[in-house]
């Protein structure tokens, strides 16, 4: 009897893991099957033609990366700052800290279209940025900040207080404790929050269609409108008749892009972790 229930348990655990992997492989396989035929080097380096049915995605790829760069440039310093304040500069049970955490958690659950409408009203219209890569990037920054702040804060809070006490006993300044001890120790959580944010941002459609816009020309500056890859995929599959194969190929590119960025972020965090030991 014992072995039977034990076996059933083991089996279901394996089953759950296999199902998760299978779902991902199926998705990837389906994308590769439909998208590979359309995918080529020239697809990556040429401009879209005939509403994206033919031609490539070069300007869209460039816009996507620029939007992401703007979003990260705004979100990383702000997010780290806010996380440090929450974890190190306020009492963990303080009323202000608690209410900020609560509002961050609420914000993290808000549908992206709401951020899109906010971004359109605030960045595009109120600040006069118009449909632009800048508006899109800043809207995404608003969107990924809550998750990024909360995961980074959790990482910092998880560092044992002994480290802080020891550092204080050694006469280290607060800034140098943060830079040399706490941040490196919290790096895996920070990177994890960053990856979640990047994943959410790169896959975003609703927040971008009304902020960075629909224009598929090669952007010349951050104030140009630029279509993001996810917006392009949505348009091709839902709005452009006969755009399916180009949509599949673009989705394949998007997935590969996300894998690349995540691997890069992981490698970065590994380097940061090893450097901690020898930091001066």
């Amino acid at each position: 009897m014992h072995t039977l229930s034990d076996r059933a348990f083991t089996l279901s655990i394996w089953g759950a893991a296999a199902l998760g992997a299978a779902a991902f492989l199926w998705l990837l396989g389906d994308l590769a099957w439909h998208g590979m035929a359309h995918l080529s080097w020239s697809f990556l380096v040429s401009e879209p033609l005939n509403a994206g049915r033919s031609g490539g995605i070069a300007p869209i790829l460039v816009s996507t990366l620029l939007i992401l760069a703007v979003a990260l440039a705004a979100a990383i310093p702000l997010g780290l700052g806010a996380a440090i304040w929450l974890a190190e500069y306020t009492r963990r049970s303080g009323a202000l800290g608690r209410s900020i955490r609560l509002s961050l958690d609420v914000l993290a659950g808000i549908p992206s279209i709401v951020f899109g409408l906010f971004g359109n009203a605030f960045f595009c219209v109120f600040l006069g940025l118009g449909f632009s890569i800048l508006s899109g990037g800043l809207t995404l920054a608003c969107m990924i900040l809550p998750i990024f702040i909360r995961t980074s804060e959790a990482g910092l809070s998880a560092v044992s207080d002994d480290w802080r006490h020891n550092a204080a006993a050694l006469g280290m300044t607060r800034a140098s404790v943060l830079w040399h001890v706490l941040l490196p120790a919290a790096a895996p959580a920070v990177i994890c929050g960053l990856m979640l944010g990047i994943g959410r941002a790169t896959a975003e459609t609703a927040a971008l269609i009304f902020t960075s816009g629909y224009v598929d020309r090669m952007p010349e500056s951050l104030s140009d409108s630029g279509r993001a890859l996810a917006v392009h995929i949505y348009d091709l599959s839902m709005n452009v008749t006969g755009g399916d194969s180009a949509a599949y190929a673009s989705a394949l590119v998007l997935i590969v892009l996300i894998v690349f960025i995540n691997t890069g972020a992981l490698a970065l965090s590994d380097r940061w972790l090893t450097r901690r030991i020898t930091a001066t």
Binding site: A74, A82, I100, S103, L104, L107, F122, S223
Partner: peptide, 26 residues
């Protein structure tokens, strides 16, 4: 979030000053 939303807006305005309204319809 109120505090960081304000930070956010502040950042947007500073970045704006750098880029200086190139976008407006011409």
């Amino acid at each position: 979030m109120k505090a960081s939303r304000w930070f956010e807006q502040l950042a947007a305005v500073t970045i704006l000053a750098g880029v200086a309204g190139v976008a407006s319809a011409s």
